[in-house]
Design a protein around this nucleic acid. Sequence first.
DNA 1: TAGTCTAGGTACCTAAAAGTGACTGCCCCC
DNA 2: GGGGGCAGTCACTTTTAGGTACCTAGACTA
Lengths: 122, 122
Amino acid sequence: MTAPIETPLPPNVFSSSCPTRRVLDSVADKWSLLVFLALKDHELRFNELRRRLESISQKVLTQTLRKMEQDGFISRAVFPTVPVTVEYKLTPLGLSLLDVIENLSEWAETHAHELNPTRTSA
Amino acid sequence: MTAPIETPLPPNVFSSSCPTRRVLDSVADKWSLLVFLALKDHELRFNELRRRLESISQKVLTQTLRKMEQDGFISRAVFPTVPVTVEYKLTPLGLSLLDVIENLSEWAETHAHELNPTRTSA
DNA sequence: TAGTCTAGGTACCTAAAAGTGACTGCCCCC
DNA sequence: GGGGGCAGTCACTTTTAGGTACCTAGACTA
């Protein structure tokens, strides 16, 4: 046990303004990932999203969409139709992030059998 | 506004046992990412980790390490030395996940300027 | 002999996230 | 003329993560 090699961590990884931190926070809440996947191929209206996400509440869906909009991952378009129509779709930035997410998904599927299933029992 | 294309979401993405979900949950808490980075190049003992993560409390570090160990991302080795020595290091699975994480980090750094900075004020 | 190091465990507290249920105003359809 | 879909808002409660502080126990050390 010699003196450990104390390679310094990049100091900014501790900060909430670290981009990686920010992106993880954006994606890793309970619903954002689902919204990304739901909007993958086409835009959807609020209640369409709600139906596809099944058990999400209106409030939380609204919050999630607002946050993703602020982050620049989705865009919100209001059409002055009969009852107003609001369409959500992924922005180029969102689509680009989706690529990375799908990378991670792929990794997760590939290694699913190596992930310890006992975690659910903890 | 024609009938929306209701491509079904993979039903398992809703479940907490969905691998992607699991991996995100593992990585996206406040400290796991830091532990991954700290263990990137070499193993570390408990208190070494604690010092490198600066502001983490013992309890939370213990929790984080236990979780990561259960997930199979790190291994824990106890040496019967003077005061007992416990070394943590990334497993091959953890190293492989670290690759994916660094992918995401790279994306985050590249697009940092596109991430809306107003989020912090929200 | 008091203090420090090792690696944690435990009880309690707080703040934020998430969920619940009711409500709005507008319009269409039956 | 009432019920339902549209896109939310508001007030409230529950759940969870994270943090604080204090505890163990053995060995070293000043």
